[in-house]
C-alpha cells in the first residue's frame, strides 16, 4: 500500500512503508522462488515494534482520526463476523427505510438476538447511500420497532454505535429527529429485555445515545464518545476552530476517559494498530464480550434488570450535593464489579 494512500493516516505512514516493503519482498519471493522468510520476519518485527511505539503515544486527536478511519470496520462488518446468521429487516412502518440505520434478527451461537446500528459507507457512492452514518427519525424509529420486537419475543438487543451525529436536515426536523431520539431513550430505559450497546467508532452525541441506553455499554479502545465534535466545540467555545486538537483532549472523549467517567462498563482492546488492521480479531473480541455480558444479564429477572438499567443512567453525572454533605459517587457498585472482571 503506497504511503500517499488517502486511507493512511499521517501517523500510520511509517507502518504503511514497512507494510509496503514486506509486501514487495513477498511478491519477489513468489516470482523468483527465493526464500527470504527471515528478512520478512525481521521486517515484521520492526513493523510491530513501530506500531507499538506509535500506538503507545496516541493523542486524543489521533483517536478521533482512528475512530473515523476510512478503513475502520463498520457495523455490518462486525455483524457478519459476530453472528452465525442474520436477516436484515427494513423500514419503520411509518415513513420509510433509513439506510444509515441497519437492523435485523441474528443468531449468536444458540441465542437469537436483535441487532441495530448505524452504518457508514465505504466509497463515495455508498457513503451517500448511507448518509455518512447519520440517521434520520426513520432510522431511530426503525431501531425502536426492532427493539420492541426483541421485547415481544424475549430476545436480547445488541446495538452498534458508529455515527458522527444524527441527521439534522429539513427532512429530519420535519419528521421530528429530536422526538425520535428522545423516545428511543425513554423506551430503551424501560425495555423488558437485556440490551448491550457497543461503541464501535464515532459515538456522536444525541445520534449515539439514541440507541445506547443499555444494561452494558462497551467501547472499542480507539472509539470516541462525545457530546459534540471537537472541531465544532473549539470554534464555539474558544472561537478558534484550529484548536480542535486541544479540544479533543479537553472534552475527554477517549475510551479510557469514558470508562473513568462511569459512562461505559468495559473497553475492548483492539488488535495491534487498530481494528482496521484486523477486523476479524476485533469482531471476535466484541463477540466474546457480548456473550460474556449476555450470560450475566440473562440470569437477572427482567424487572430487576430494568431497575438496574435505570439506576445505572440515573447515577451518571458528577456534582456535589451539599444537602447530603458527600459528593455524588460516579461509578455504581455493579459497574465496578464489571470492570474488575476485566476485558474479554
Amino acid at each position: 500500500m503506497p504511503s500517499k494512500d488517502w486511507t493512511v493516516l499521517d501517523f500510520e505512514k511509517p507502518i504503511a512503508e514497512l507494510d509496503e516493503q514486506i509486501a514487495q519482498i513477498k511478491r519477489l519471493t513468489q516470482e523468483q522462488g527465493i526464500d527470504r522468510s527471515e528478512e520478512i520476519a525481521a521486517l515484521e518485527r520492526d513493523r510491530d515494534r513501530a506500531i507499538e511505539e506509535i500506538f503507545s503515544n496516541l493523542t486524543p486527536w489521533d483517536r478521533v482520526l482512528l475512530a473515523r478511519h476510512p478503513k475502520r470496520p463498520y457495523t455490518l462488518d462486525y455483524v457478519r463476523i459476530i453472528f452465525d446468521d442474520y436477516v436484515e429487516l427494513h423500514g419503520d412502518r411509518l415513513y420509510g427505510d433509513d439506510h444509515a440505520m441497519v437492523g435485523g434478527i441474528a443468531r449468536l451461537g444458540d441465542r437469537h438476538v436483535v441487532f441495530v446500528g448505524q452504518q457508514k459507507g465505504r466509497d463515495l457512492k455508498e457513503r451517500q447511500y448511507r448518509n455518512f452514518g447519520m440517521a434520520k427519525p426513520d432510522g431511530y424509529r426503525k431501531a425502536l420497532r426492532l427493539m420492541k420486537l426483541a421485547e415481544k419475543f424475549k430476545r436480547p438487543v445488541i446495538t452498534f454505535v458508529d455515527t458522527p451525529a444524527a441527521d439534522c436536515s429539513v427532512d429530519a426536523e420535519a419528521r421530528g429527529i429530536s422526538e425520535a431520539i428522545a423516545r428511543n431513550m425513554m423506551e430503551m430505559s424501560v425495555l423488558e429485555t437485556p440490551i448491550i450497546s457497543v461503541i464501535l467508532g464515532e459515538g456522536g452525541s444525541g445520534g449515539a445515545i439514541g440507541i445506547a441506553v443499555a444494561d452494558r455499554v462497551i467501547m472499542m479502545e480507539n472509539a470516541i464518545y462525545s457530546v459534540i465534535p471537537p472541531e465544532g466545540c473549539a470554534a464555539i467555545l474558544w472561537r478558534d476552530p484550529s484548536k480542535y486538537k486541544e479540544m479533543a483532549a479537553a472534552l475527554r472523549i477517549t475510551s479510557a476517559d469514558a470508562l473513568e467517567l462511569g459512562v461505559v462498563d468495559e473497553v475492548i482492546k483492539e488488535p495491534l494498530g487498530g481494528a482496521h488492521r484486523n477486523p476479524e480479531a476485533a469482531a471476535l473480541s466484541v463477540k466474546a464480550a457480548i456473550v460474556k455480558h449476555l450470560e450475566t444479564l440473562e440470569k437477572i429477572p427482567v424487572q430487576k434488570l430494568v431497575d438496574a438499567r435505570y439506576k445505572k443512567f440515573r447515577s451518571m453525572g458528577i456534582f456535589e450535593d451539599t444537602s447530603k454533605k458527600k459528593p455524588q459517587k460516579k461509578v455504581p457498585a455493579e459497574q465496578q464489579e464489571q470492570e474488575e472482571q476485566g476485558e474479554a
Partner: peptide, 26 residues
C-alpha cells in the same frame, strides 16, 4: 442544548432525564 464543558456527562443527562420521564409516565 447539552453543556459542552461537562462533555460526555452532559450527553448522559439526556438518557437520565428521558428515563425519569418514562417512570413518571408509566
Amino acid at each position: 442544548g447539552a453543556r459542552m464543558q461537562e462533555g460526555i456527562l452532559s450527553l448522559m443527562q439526556m438518557a437520565k432525564t428521558a428515563a425519569a420521564v418514562a417512570r413518571h409516565s408509566k
